[in-house]
């Protein structure tokens, strides 16, 4: 897959716009998910994830081929989500938190219909609960926890994505793990 992406990026740099479609298609779920967990709602997540791909396309010539494209792309996406969070007004922020539970209602309805086996529903509810706990972590811990355990980047890569020293990444991942441990210990 890395080879396919490398090839497509080369084509995009030569001016072949259609080659970018494969890149978007390959990363869309990962980047959207990352934005969703950073922002807590689907509307902003879609907006920012799209913006991330557009910025990547426009600035493709500043991407160094010897590096990992995913790291570069996540960096763009993460910076955009952090900007968006900073620009939020306090009341807007509350709105966003409420919107973040829309999906939860949908799943609760599914459960009410009794279409899913009970265990699976419990699994989904647990996943939703975990999701909510992750979203409630402060952004600087949340981004690292997600990049490490959901997107499976190494600590060194996370330091590159967020442009912060490796030592800071370690301190924050420790605190993030401890915060989540306290929230999830009774589950």
């Amino acid at each position: 897959m890395d080879e396919m992406i490398r090839e497509r990026i080369k084509q995009v740099k030569k001016g072949d716009q259609s080659a970018f479609e494969d890149v978007v298609s390959f990363f869309q779920n990962k980047i959207y998910q990352h934005c969703y967990r950073m922002l807590g709602n689907a509307h902003e997540a879609e907006d920012i994830a799209q913006e991330a791909f557009i910025r990547a396309y426009v600035n493709i010539h500043s991407f160094d081929d010897r590096r990992k494209f995913s790291t570069w792309l996540y960096r763009i996406a993460t910076n955009l989500t952090i900007d968006r969070i900073r620009k939020r007004k306090p009341d807007h922020y509350l709105d966003a938190e409420v919107k973040g539970t829309e999906g939860l209602n949908m799943y609760s309805q599914l459960a009410d219909n009794g279409r899913l086996p009970e265990e699976e529903v419990e699994g989904l509810e647990l996943q939703r609960y975990i999701q909510q706990e992750i979203i409630q972590l402060p952004p600087k811990y949340r981004s690292i926890i997600m990049l490490r355990y959901i997107e499976e980047f190494s600590l060194q890569e996370i330091s590159e994505i967020l442009d912060i020293p490796l030592g800071t990444v370690k301190t924050r991942i420790h605190r993030g793990r401890e915060a989540l441990r306290k929230k999830l210990r009774h589950v």
């Binding site: 869309q28 779920n29 998910q33 989904l124 992750i134 959901i150 989540l180 999830l184």
Partner: peptide
């Protein structure tokens, strides 16, 4: 906790995402 985080639900992009970006 780490196992929990890793089991968090996978979220998928909206169906028309790639087309909209293009």
């Amino acid at each position: 906790t780490i196992t929990f985080i890793q089991s968090a639900e996978q979220i998928k992009a909206p169906a028309n995402f790639t087309a909209t970006v293009m």
